[in-house]
Amino acid sequence: MYVFGYRLPGLSSLLIWGLLWEIVGRAELTFFVPPLSEVLRTLVAIIGTPPFIKALSETAYAFSGGVFAAIVIGVPLGILMGRSRLLDELLLPWANMFLSAPLTALVPVLMVLFGFGMKAIIITTALFAIWIIILNSRAGVRQINRSLVEMAHSFGASPVDAFFKIYFWAALPEILGGVRIGIIRAVKGVIIGQLLISIVGFGALFELYSANFLMAHFWAVLLVLFALAFSISEFLAYLERKVAYYAAKR
């Protein structure tokens, strides 16, 4: 961003929004928005407290469990769909439907099926993340250069070799893109799970703070959540850039 010809460092637009937040907060327009400085002070105060650590670890557990399941199931499934006509015709309509379906509406069904515990939350998280991972992996495999496959075959590659040495790597740029979007969706999934299924983790903190009108606390936890999601997504974007050198030349 340039102001009067001076180049401002990245993220400096955040400063302007932070300033605006502070002003709105100081003006006491609404109890819903306390000043940013107060939110940050609260953040420093609650971070490291046992309830916060407990919430963080519960959320991290459900989140990583769900994301792990979504990747471990979604990537191979997407690759197989990209390779097998039959599997593709069977599963593609479902994947497309669930990608755009309001998954929140399914959460009560999951509660009936899997109970009110961590298991249902992990499954909710996975359900939010998996569809885009499947579809992207599938797209990655479908654009693979046929002669790479023939090359591997002509040198005697087994199906397992072809899968791990050709298909996976050829589709990797799309797979990483899918995982990145999937992870952003998983953040949504884990919080919805923790609010609707059982009140644990950050969901419990949100519930507690909003019920008691502790808005500074509420915003502090939200900031932490945003920061976490942002860093994970940036990390994946970094990995994507590392494979970009061949993405355009497959």
Partner: peptide
């Protein structure tokens, strides 16, 4: 086999 389009692993 030697391929017309080389068929090299770009990665």
């Amino acid at each position: 086999f030697v391929f017309q389009d080389f068929a090299l692993l770009p990665w």
